[in-house]
Design a protein around this nucleic acid. Sequence first.
RNA 1: GGGUGUGUAGCUCAGCGGUAUGAGCACUACGUUGACAUCGUAGGGGUCACAGGUUCGAUCCCUGUCACACCCACCA
Length: 878
Amino acid sequence: MLDKTYNPKNFEEKIYAEWETTGDFKPNMNKNKEAYAVVIPPPNVTGVLHMGHALNNTLQDILIRYNRMLGKNVLWQPGMDHAGIATQMVVERNLAAEGITRHDLGREKFIETVWQWKEKSGGTICKQLRRLGASCDWSRTRFTMDEGLSKAVRKIFVRLYKDGLIYKAKRLVNWDSKFMTAVSDLEVIQKETVGKMYYYKYPIKGEEGEFVHIATTRPETMFGDTAVAISKDNEKLKHLIGKECIIPIINRIIPIVADDHADPEKGTGAVKITPAHDFNDFEVGKRHNLPLINILNPDATLNENTPFAGMDTQTARKATIEKLEELGFMEKIEDHPMVIPYGERSNVVIEPMLTDQWFVDAPVLAKEAIRAVEDGQMQFVSKSYEKTYFEWMHNIQPWCISRQLWWGHQMPIWYGPDGEIFCEENEEEAQAAADKHYGKKVELTRETDVLDTWFSSGLWAFSTLGWPDKSEYLDTFYPTSVLVTGFDIIFFWVARMMMMSMYIMKKAPFKKVYIHGLVRDEQGRKMSKSKGNTVDPMELIEKYGADALRFFMAAMETQGRDINVSEARIQGYRNFATKLWNSARFGEMNECLSVEGFDETQVQHPLNRWIIAKVKAISKELTENLNNFRFSDSANTVYQFVWGSFCDWYIEMIKPILYGENEEEKAETRATFAWVLNRILIILHPFMPFITSELWKNIGTHSQHLINAPWPQNESYDEKAISEIDSVIDLISNIRSLRAEMDLPAGARLKVYLKSVNKATLAQVERFKTIICSLARLEEITAYDGEVTSDMIQSVFREASLLIPLKGVVDFAAERERLQKELVGLEQNLASYERKLSNPNFVEKAPAAVVAEERRRQTEALENKAKVEEALARIVGL
RNA sequence: GGGUGUGUAGCUCAGCGGUAUGAGCACUACGUUGACAUCGUAGGGGUCACAGGUUCGAUCCCUGUCACACCCACCA
């Protein structure tokens, strides 16, 4: 017996536990079946489920469950990312609570601590994904720091290195002074701020009273200046080129060089050049062979190359200005809007810093990654994201992959005594290579830097399947079928996976990438912890059930558009689940559970034929939508059918049968009900796996789990059976509208007379009399073909083409007015049809179906007009 | 500065070269009829941002304008 009310809390977790124990999430490994694989975008091991995950994983689970029901060999590969900076940050914060730093522990001990933390509290998110219903094959869970994946990382690193695609270089990089590591361009966030522009002057050497005027937003960097640049086209200032000037305070002499970087229109036209702390200046420095003076410590305080060693940049800036003012070089300070780079995680100002770092030659790897998309080997859904991808790939910069962190893949690089680099997969090999190189046994030191987290994520599509070892999974599931991810991660992850996979596997890692949008708050603002407008998906699941949240996500997802959370809507989908639940209860109460010996192609009763044809039609539509990643359309298709067709109409219409005496009809209807309900559970299962499974278990007897129930494919259905009852529904709706329009009490028992010009309609009315009377709440409905008498009022139906006089209501004036208005409308329509159909261009150029439809409308309007006129004539006479 | 996207019902949004039978929520009236008030029936509400163009026909395609959002680059 089903509970009286739908209460997802009673069964969702139980159902999930059953799925896991039966092993239904594992691929069937049937060689004859098409393989279908999805790799999960690995959540951070530190992560907790947010709305973005909920959306992302709901979509994946829908695809996975759908394809599993298609009978394919389906793998959803789960796992987690070690998330270098994020994890190190969390663990360090925990340590700080105990008053220790990672340096107190030392590298080895610290890493051990991280692993302990990971075992204990990492991976909450996997539990939460289960709560959402994600049907991953958890037995295959991978972690980017697993031995297997680490092996892949080392192997690929070595290969890239030996192919010359990884190199070490002294370059200006984005330096995060909080974590004291380099970060990649993508991890830098530009923020708009109102800063200051400082104007001051450098005296020209040997020319008393001559100055070059400078404007800068960062005066404290003047100690790192090694030149001043002026454009050679700058008529006003070009006479200074070639002279030298003196940096005040430290009195260093630097040249004034000609360089087009100095735009005569901007600032003062003369630019101070600080090659070690500005990306543009670095380039200028290279052109003019300028020395590089580093003025910062790793923690972004000024170093001993400045007079303000130990001060942070803000303090040093103030000190510099004061000193300049004191010395009389300061000219003016203006407010200046500008963008300042911040660390994505650390939220501190990122400093360009000259350091030794390791780079991947991304521009080379990008070539194949671009080609794979150009030749359609990998497709974006929707296609418009291609542009973004190409744009970025074509302008890609070398990728800085070294991080001065502890948590991560330590680079497989060893240095000989003289600094010679040995890149091998392990220490023994490096040692062997070194011994050979030096001709004697030497001591090696290992590179301490670790790799950017995205390096290992970039291998995810094949490393999780077992690469570099030979593996049945790799052979079967690579390349994967589709990757589902948000657009915010195209560069970070998709692009890198493309580059790495093309390089290693020579095949794109997935055939398609489905890009979805961001989940925003109710007002469409981006969710953020600092704004306090985040919505916790677990709370929503607690409140409305996972199925409701999932259905919401599916219903709102329209190929990449952002989604605004709407609790009202989620509630609405909970109501939908309730509706379904109650319809099943209705079935239970009326013994509509068994489909034993039932052949749905042999049903007799038109209502049963109707609902069967209808659900088959809807199944087909749904299948098409799912094949095209049209999640919103898919969800709405099922929703409309279940609530609109099945609950509102079918159940209401079969009540007279179920409560009636005709046992044969009753039996057929019961079985039909059960069959259709089962079908609903099947097609709804990818969206609402919990409630459908719970009902599947409770009603009827099934030889297999719903999760593996066969998805309907290539069915034909009886379109006539559909239109037959659809028109009855039309008629009933029209009668109901009319009642309301005429302000008749809903309880009033009416007798309705129909006058029809259409014999078929008449017959149909006769045939479905009971149903029509029951649903339209009529006492009687009769075909009527006599004179209209004064105790009848007339109304016109455009849709049903029927005249319906209702007995007992007399308001001829109002009715006449209504009919006249109707007539005017009809005449307007007729004029427009006439205009169109008499236009040869339309008749020739428009598709035949459109023209035919227009003709049909014209004919219909003409018929209606005749009827209205007739009715009017009769009323006028009364 | 470069790019992308969006502007449709009170709100949040679907949709589409052929009269917008648009969806959910909200709203109005009626209704506890034996699955369901987490409900039912009926209803109101839109010159599809603006201006041009293409077309037999434009809310849809093109161009421009305005507004908003996002991405990339950069501003000494």
